[in-house]
Design a protein around this nucleic acid. Structure first.
Length: 264
DNA sequence: CTCAGTGTTCAGTG
DNA sequence: TCACTGAACACTGA
């Protein structure tokens, strides 16, 4: 589920469910891996009774702004997501935290694979994970010349550089592949070798793809049909897009789907 | 049974 | 220090 558009969609869901309300009951699963730097017990103690003012996001990190500190900081890992419901009996499988509001609405984060993280921080924006993030394509997208300068310092393959959260926060595997496909840039090109014009294209596609995915609430079925996204997992049968073969290679430690006929 | 996956971190290397 | 690479982490489903 979780790249920038999925996390932004979850943020909006959480803000609708919790915004302006008091958390009258907090449940925390006994999971010492997902809870990082805080025990489930302490988490419950610190959060119960607080009011949620709003929900923030940067890259794939999300936090609840409460009327007192510390604040919960959440990351979905590979399989995290939110559920909203209104009876305790509907608490979903693999739940890690459940927040119940004064009006009966409940929100839970689930994470079967347990790569997600739940932390408690006094000031998430200036602390560890978030402070190390680069620009957020939705909040902070740099001008093309600035991006050109950033990429000029990187010798790794552009695919790997796009996945680096300290450069572009929120970009994950499918967004990186989609951007490179639509910008017609081969994933193994060294970032510092891209021309100013290619960087301009890359920037434009990054912005458009992230915005569109957020516009449709990260619902894959509503992604434009022309997107590589729909074909990227059709491995075996020699999948094609617009008549061109899609190949799969490991780049930057991740499976990369790309189209040699289109990307240079 | 084995492997890869919408992610992050850390050890090891240059 | 920095940039980069690859493995590890935990679990599910093809």
């Amino acid at each position: 589920m979780p790249e920038l558009p999925e996390v932004e969609t979850a943020r909006r869901l959480a803000e609708r469910a919790l915004g302006g309300k008091r958390l009258v009951a907090v449940a925390a699963a006994d999971d010492r891996i997902v809870y990082e730097g805080v025990t489930p017990r302490t988490f419950i103690k610190k959060v119960t009774g607080a009011r949620v003012e709003c929900v923030g996001r940067r890259g794939k990190q999300m936090w609840l702004e409460l009327d007192r500190r510390p604040w919960p900081l959440l990351h979905f890992g590979m399989t995290g997501r939110f559920w909203v419901y209104d009876t305790a009996a509907d608490r979903p499988r693999h739940w890690k935290v459940e927040l119940a509001c004064d009006d009966g609405v409940r929100l839970a984060m689930t994470d079967p694979r347990r790569f997600g993280r739940i932390r408690l921080q006094h000031d998430p924006l200036s602390d560890k994970p978030i402070a190390a993030l680069g620009f957020d394509p939705l909040l902070d997208l740099p001008r093309s010349d600035v991006l050109f300068g950033l990429l000029g310092k990187r010798r790794g393959p552009i695919k790997a550089v796009l996945l680096d959260q300290s450069l572009a926060a929120g970009v994950g595997n499918w967004i990186a592949d989609e951007v490179l496909y639509q910008a017609r840039i081969a994933p193994r090109r060294r970032a510092c070798d891209l021309s100013a014009d290619e960087v301009k294209r890359l920037r434009g596609k990054l912005s458009a793809i992230v915005r569109k995915a957020v516009d449709v609430e990260a619902d894959k079925q509503r992604f434009p049909r022309t997107w590589l996204f729909h074909k990227r997992w059709g491995k075996q049968n020699g999948a094609t897009i617009a008549g061109h073969r899609i190949v799969h290679e490991t780049i930057g430690g991740r499976t990369t789907a790309w189209v040699p006929k289109v990307q240079r």
